[in-house]
């Protein structure tokens, strides 16, 4: 699985931050810290100058120039800055999976990723899964065919997660329920375990599991097993 992955450490852009600036002399140690811990009263002119960064993000094959406060999560940038609202915010704490996107082909919770830390990665959201001609990704088609959703809120995360699951299986990654780690195969129990990071409040699991299994049948053989997004 190395091939697609070595990309992870290739920087598309030189970092724009100035790393080794000394401890901020301007910050008063007695600044009120406030139990609600927000920004007010804790920033000053000296910090304000370095608490944002200019960088580029590569999302669904397109480069985006950004100049943002470092606090922005990847999820918030996708939704609020770039109008890519497919990725959803369910919890903002890594607990629900609604925000799942692919980073260098690997699934990740975009709510816990700082956008500034996602520089140089190939980011794929649910909007980037279909082919250029609009042909749906096999996982998307399988979710449609199996009616694998009710309200649809968790669905983009479920789909991105499932796309990565197929890759992980093709790459021989075991799961907690894998009996023989040398012969990893997807079955109902495997899908349930591997998709456990995606919660569905509507409880559409009964149709999600067959959809993922169907998607695997559709992609079997075509899957590259190289850690990249398969289509």
């Amino acid at each position: 699985m190395a091939a697609g992955r070595s990309q992870a450490y290739v920087r598309g852009v030189t970092p724009t931050h100035s790393p080794a600036t000394a401890a901020d002399p301007g910050r008063s140690p007695t600044a009120p810290s406030g139990a609600s811990s927000d920004t007010s009263g804790r920033s000053d002119a000296a910090t304000a100058a370095v608490t944002r960064s200019a960088y580029r993000l590569r999302i669904n094959g397109t480069e985006h120039e950004l100049d943002l406060d470092n606090r922005a999560s990847l999820l918030d940038v996708l939704r609020d800055r770039l109008d890519l609202t497919g990725s959803k915010k369910g919890c903002d704490h890594g607990q629900c999976g609604a925000c799942t996107v692919l980073l260098d082909g690997r699934r990740a919770n975009s709510c816990l990723v700082l956008a500034v830390a996602a520089q140089g990665r190939e980011i794929t959201t649910v909007e980037g899964l279909a082919g250029a001609d609009g042909e749906l990704h096999p996982v998307q088609q399988a979710f449609l065919d199996h009616d694998a959703y009710q309200c649809g809120y968790c669905t983009p995360g479920q789909i991105c997660s499932a796309v990565a699951v197929l890759d992980e299986v093709a790459n021989g990654w075991p799961s907690a329920v894998t009996r023989d780690p040398d012969a990893v195969e997807l079955d109902r129990a495997e899908v349930r375990e591997r998709m456990a990071g995606n919660i569905c409040r509507c409880g559409a699991y009964a149709n999600i599991v067959p959809a993922v299994l169907e998607a695997q049948r559709l992609t079997a053989g075509a899957a590259g097993g190289d850690g990249a997004v398969t289509r």
């Binding site: 608490t51 470092n70 606090r71």
Partner: peptide, 19 residues
């Protein structure tokens, strides 16, 4: 969330020096 500066380290030595 409090505002913060961000830097990325390329090596162990740089990481320790930066912090």
């Amino acid at each position: 969330m409090r505002e913060f500066a961000y830097g990325s380290a390329e090596s162990v030595e740089q990481a320790v020096a930066m912090l």
